[in-house]
Design a protein around this nucleic acid. Structure first.
Lengths: 205, 205
DNA sequence: CATCAAACATGATAGTCGTCATGTATGCAA
DNA sequence: TTGCATACATGACGACTATCATGTTTGATG
C-alpha cells in the first residue's frame, strides 16, 4: 500500500511516483482523469466508483492508471485538491455586495445544485466519507479553511458579531441544508428545506 | 436482487421473507443485528461494513443472516427505521424549555458527539450515502420529518417567524456543523466550528 | 533516422463481498 | 415422544476491484 502525505504548509501531496517528462498531452490526460474522478466521486461516493470506471470515463482503459497515480487513495486526495482550487478560482469572480452574497447562497441552496452533485460542493457530497479517509482529510481541511476565509472576506456581514463566526454559521446551514435536501425522497419537504434555510440566511439583505 | 418497499403511510418496510414463529430469543437476536448494524454503519458507512462483520459483532457467523433479512439493503432500511424510533423515544424526555433546547443543541454540537458517530445522529453520519441508496431514502425521510416536528413543537421559538421554519434552519446548521467538524483534520478548526455554530443557535436564550 | 523512456492496452492475481447451498441442531406442535 | 419448520455453522460460487505484469506503441531527443 502507498502512504500519501499532505503538507499543510505547502499544500502539496507528496507521493512516490513522480510524472517525469510530462508532455502537454499527458498533462491534459492527467487533468481529465482528475476531473472525471471528482465528478464521479461526488455523484456516487469514493467507494461507489471503481478505478476502471474513471479511466473509461476519461477514454482510456484501466491499465495506464498507475502511470498517473500511485493508488486510488492518491487520486482521491489529488482530485479533491484540484477541484478545490478550481472552485476557489470561480469564487473570486463573485461580487462583494449584499446581492452577490444572496446570489451565491441562493445558487448553493438551489434545486439545480441539489440535483447535480457531480458538479457541486465537495463538502456536501463527500464529507462523511472523508471523515473516514485519512488521505483526504488534509485537502478537505484546506478547502474548508479557504472557503471560510473567502466567505468571511468576500461578503458584507453585520458588524455586531465577528464576520468569521457568521461565515461559519452560514456555511454550516448551507451544507446541512443541501445534504438534507438531497437525502430526502419527498420533493415538497426537500424544497421546503432549501427555501427555509435560504430565507434564514438572506433575511437581513 | 430483492426489492424493498417502504410504505410512507404505515411506515412499514415490506419484504419477501417474513419471520414466522418469532421466538423471544430469535427476536432478540434480530434486534441485536439491527443495533450492531446501525452502530457500524454510522461509524464506517454502508459500504464500509460487510454483512459478516455485522454478524460477527452480533456473535454469530455470516450464515444465518438471510434467515433474518432478505438482503443487506433491507437491513440498511430496517436498521435505519429501528434506530430512528429509538432516537425519537429519547427525544420525548427532553424538557420543553429554553434550557432544554440549549442543552439538546449543545450536546448535538459537542466534541463527544463528534467523536462517537456510531452512537450519534443518523443524518450527519449517513446522509450523502442515503441519497444514493433508494431503499433507505424512505426511512430517512420519515426520520427527518419526525425530527423537524419534534424540534418545532418541543422547544420554544421566537414568535416573529414560523416555528417550523426556525426548526429547519436550526437542524440544517446542526447537521452541517457536525458534518464539517468531523471531516476536518485540524482540531482547532473543528472545535471552532462546533463553538461558532452553537453560539449562533443559542444566542437568544 | 535511431533510441529509449513514457504511456498505452490486454491480461492476470489476490482479496473481498453479497448471496446461496447444504447439513446439523433446536424448540414448538401434535 | 415424534415431526417439522426454523435458526445455526461451514463452505462455496460468482462478481467485482485494486493492483501488478507484460508486451506494444509513441513521441521527444540526439
Amino acid at each position: 500500500m502507498t502512504t500519501i502525505m499532505f503538507d499543510v504548509n505547502t499544500r502539496e501531496i507528496k507521493v512516490e511516483i513522480v510524472m517525469r517528462y510530462p508532455a502537454a498531452e499527458t498533462a491534459e490526460k492527467h487533468e481529465r482523469i482528475l476531473d472525471q474522478a471528482a465528478k464521479l466521486f461526488r455523484e456516487r461516493g469514493f467507494s461507489g466508483v471503481s478505478v476502471s470506471e474513471i479511466m473509461k470515463a476519461t477514454g482510456l482503459t484501466h491499465g495506464p492508471f498507475y502511470n498517473h497515480f500511485p493508488s486510488k487513495e492518491a487520486l482521491m486526495a489529488e482530485s479533491m485538491q484540484h477541484t478545490s482550487q478550481k472552485a476557489m478560482g470561480k469564487f473570486s469572480m463573485v461580487e462583494n455586495t449584499a446581492n452577490g452574497k444572496a446570489d451565491f447562497i441562493g445558487s448553493y441552496l438551489s434545486a439545480t445544485h441539489r440535483d447535480t452533485p457531480g458538479d457541486g460542493c465537495l463538502i456536501a457530497a463527500l464529507a462523511p466519507e472523508i471523515s473516514r479517509e485519512p488521505a483526504v482529510r488534509g485537502p478537505l481541511t484546506c478547502h474548508l479553511a479557504d472557503f471560510i476565509d473567502k466567505m468571511t472576506s468576500q461578503f458584507p456581514w453585520p458588524e455586531d458579531k465577528p464576520a468569521r463566526q457568521q461565515a461559519i454559521q452560514a456555511i454550516a446551514a448551507m451544507v446541512g441544508g443541501l445534504v438534507m435536501a438531497r437525502a430526502v425522497s419527498d420533493e415538497a419537504l426537500s424544497d421546503e428545506i432549501l427555501h427555509d434555510v435560504l430565507a434564514g440566511l438572506t433575511e437581513g439583505s
